[in-house]
Design a protein around this nucleic acid. Sequence first.
DNA 1: GGCCTGTGGGACAGCGCTATCCTATGAGTC
DNA 2: GACTCATAGGATAGCGCTGTCCCACAGGCC
Lengths: 343, 343
Amino acid sequence: MTTPKNDKNTRTTGRPTLNEVARSAGVSPITASRALRGIPSVAEELAQRVRDAARELGYVANPAARALASARSQTVAVVVPSLGNQLFVETLEAIHAVMRPKGLEVLIGNSHYSRDEEEDLIRNYLAYQPRGLLLTGFERTESARRMLDSSGIPCVYMMDLDSGAGLHCVGFSQLRAGAAAAEHLIARGRQRMAFVGAQLDQRTLLRGEGFRRALQQAGLYDPALELLTPRSSSVGLGCELFNQLLASHPQIDAIFFGNDDLAHGALLEAMRRGVKVPEQVAVLGFNDLPASSFMVPRLSSIRTPREAIGRRAAELLLALMAGQSIAEPVQDIGFELMVREST
Amino acid sequence: MTTPKNDKNTRTTGRPTLNEVARSAGVSPITASRALRGIPSVAEELAQRVRDAARELGYVANPAARALASARSQTVAVVVPSLGNQLFVETLEAIHAVMRPKGLEVLIGNSHYSRDEEEDLIRNYLAYQPRGLLLTGFERTESARRMLDSSGIPCVYMMDLDSGAGLHCVGFSQLRAGAAAAEHLIARGRQRMAFVGAQLDQRTLLRGEGFRRALQQAGLYDPALELLTPRSSSVGLGCELFNQLLASHPQIDAIFFGNDDLAHGALLEAMRRGVKVPEQVAVLGFNDLPASSFMVPRLSSIRTPREAIGRRAAELLLALMAGQSIAEPVQDIGFELMVREST
DNA sequence: GGCCTGTGGGACAGCGCTATCCTATGAGTC
DNA sequence: GACTCATAGGATAGCGCTGTCCCACAGGCC
């Protein structure tokens, strides 16, 4: 009477809605919803009509409305500690390859190897009601752990197994991989073996621990030959640490690097300084990044199965999301020692 | 105490809602909403009470409900062609660094250098009603272009400028960068210069084009010395192409690689085969990845300002999202020739 | 025929928030 | 004191979709 209530709908998105698709197909919105979601209780002829109408209008479902109405999204969140490390990029690729065909969106979070950043990411992602979560390792804040527990959202842990009791995890034993590195160098007759680790995330520390124990067992452990730094791993840092190590301990005859980046730097620096690899010093890397087999000399490394980890973790998560019972909650994918010229 | 209440209604998320925060603070839901969004029309004393209640309950706003009600999300989508290239990872970092403090979520899409995949990603992301979009380059399908146009969502294009008329873009001229590469090698007295490009995305092609034109101008262009392949750039491919080029054209005295990965492979292969760089062949890379300055010999390269591109593109997008008028829609960040030992 | 069952499809009522009104209050004006 | 006017806060009504009931109807059985 006094105030016209017919306001222009500025709140709408302007994109076609399910209602319009339904009207255009001559069915009710619910039937349209069911048809587009592939729910079988819709007669094929009707479903086809709805799909045609949707294509015609360029309809794409509004994920916010969908998430709100159903209290679940079509999203899976992944948190990795770094995108600079090719390792995690390849893992993400494999996850994508499994999730995308299922119509699941993959949210990528980068924690920069920081527990606090990871906690923020998890808090943030949980608000999106993801169908599942893929996390790296077991190292996180207590409150992140609590949020995960109380959320009830399925979660798979990637990369490590060593302290994953009671959790669903896909990876390999970092401890055993470190030990394998030591055993290889010992088998090559090396006597004074160093470990160089950067970043100091839990996995690097575990590799160092495995390496150390194997050396101790062989009576070859020298604590002075461990070089650890919290700085982040890079080729340049590898150069620097190699020099530092050789300057302080010229007698060493093998180095195990916690990451291939570092080993690449060491090989380049050795080349530059005329240090003979492997004659004077053997160099062993970790992860076996794509470039490693092309280094001079070709780098021996422990190949980590990141493609398989990503894929299997994604598949495990899908099974959890579907409520299936899991026969093997802990999946050990193993690792492979790639022996090349540098050892 | 925060006791998760067990609704029988399965449609709820189980997490605390704005209503509960409001009740606990003794205000209406709308006041709570305003208080938490920092809308100034709420008395400070009330706002504080609401914030306290929210913290107490561990309340995190439901982004789906928020997006639905306001027809806008708190999200910005970025599409890059690859995560395997460090270049884009660094760009993403810079974007994050600008967006996160503003409370904006960054969705990362990887198009794998495929127009069709990019179109899918864009269609998908547009459904999320992002506040803005950051895309790489200008090469895309017609229907992707149409979707972007009709969405009305602000968009900034990164990396290239050469065909960005009328668009908001941040980057540098790939053409001029290619020309700069040629000029540098010419200034070094080289006579038979090759160009090696992989992936064959538009930017690589433009760099090649700039290189070619500059050689033509100097009367030094030989079409036989262009080696192009659609395979994706890697160190291994660099080795292979280097060998191939030297086998077919042993007389060349300089190679410009469209990406540092390839140049790294070439340097390693040269080392392995005893080809002297730069005496016999000068090698020039592109992007100046972190490892380049540690190669043997240290790789000369054209440094691309990806950190600045990411940051400036993000800032430009923020300005567009805020409806500000843009003084400079095309921002040329330039590039820098890093002359090192390999040339 | 009466009764059941199964099946396709629709009506309805929200999911958790926010845009848009609208009211109550109190200060300021003449 | 009667009138404005600004302002804090509330009431209401959706945003676009889906979970849950419910109904109409065909076919089978006794």
